[in-house]
Design a protein around this nucleic acid. Sequence first.
DNA 1: TCAAAATCTGACCGATCGGTCAATTAGCCT
DNA 2: AGGCTAATTGACCGATCGGTCAGATTTTGA
Lengths: 197, 197
Amino acid sequence: MPTTADDLRRVALQEFAAAGYLGTSLQQIADRAGVSKATVLYHFTSKEVLLEAVLSPALDQLDGILGQVGLAGLQRGGQSRTEFLERFVDFLLEHRSAVYIFVNQATSLVDIPVVERANAEIELISRYFEENVGSVEEKVRFGVALGGAAYLLAGAPVSMPEPDLGALRTALLNVLSDLLAPSAPSRSTTRSTGTAD
Amino acid sequence: MPTTADDLRRVALQEFAAAGYLGTSLQQIADRAGVSKATVLYHFTSKEVLLEAVLSPALDQLDGILGQVGLAGLQRGGQSRTEFLERFVDFLLEHRSAVYIFVNQATSLVDIPVVERANAEIELISRYFEENVGSVEEKVRFGVALGGAAYLLAGAPVSMPEPDLGALRTALLNVLSDLLAPSAPSRSTTRSTGTAD
DNA sequence: TCAAAATCTGACCGATCGGTCAATTAGCCT
DNA sequence: AGGCTAATTGACCGATCGGTCAGATTTTGA
């Protein structure tokens, strides 16, 4: 049975992702949750605190992923890199709305602690893949992979007609493998898995 | 010699990209341009009109690119596809701020004509690449390419230390070629061009 | 020169924002 | 039943938002 606070978190997540943090008023969230604006501010002392409550679960899980795999296991040719990528894609799919908020609104949400914490973690992942190298193309590949995945997941103009999550997961895994593979693309090996084509 | 209207367009473009359309007040733009808020509204009858004036040049140029190359020339294996990609990357680089605004804030700027026009064009480009196929993986590749490029160009958390535009252009061209190639990745063929690595 | 046109500004407007607070209602424990 | 706490609410606050307007200033052109 969902509590009022749960409802507010759910509604706020949707609204923040769809209309943006700045474009969403506490009144809107209150209306869609069926409570008054004062009630929202009773459960969450400020709009910023509400944002933090909305985004923290995703960040915590990301922390867990980074901790489990560990820096050492992510050498350039290491096997655990594939494992990391798989967990990472699953994370992106599960927390797609939160990821979308992070990636698309991070620049306009400076000085908000939870957003800066997210930026720090993105930078940490970035260092995983760059390691000692850090050529321009490596940076570009990583940036495109991260930003592109987030952009896609939110169902932007380029829409996914059917939210076939299984096929989406497979495709995303292939594409990211290509982008982040240190030398040889691995796309052809795991070509089709989902829908018939 | 830049006119006041030019200054306002320039400042507004920077602010809209950095803090978001909703996160930028007319007062901020006026201050940074060294004029009063009323002057802003004298040159541009509303904030929405200012946004349109800021984004239109990029959209017009995109129109030109799409018109020149033409739909017919963009068959799956067609040669003009590379040519299109090159023009497209140059377009992304020249209008990086405008592209960033489009991609990152399109969902929160509904009912604004210039943004809907941009969405229509993005969908048009999408259809170029999908053509008859449109498998899930093709869609994912396109979405990642477009969103990823835009995300990267705005200098998000994963920063480009030196804005070496030449190297950036080459790298971006390679990555997008990989992503949008119908079958065989072409990364290795045009590996390095810019900085020494 | 001088009036007409273009440009710029401060004062002001209604609306909405995030947030506070006292008062009311609902649930819980003994 | 009765008291205690949690939950909810409407009224209200100062600040800021986009936008209007009358008037001052500058530029232009015949």
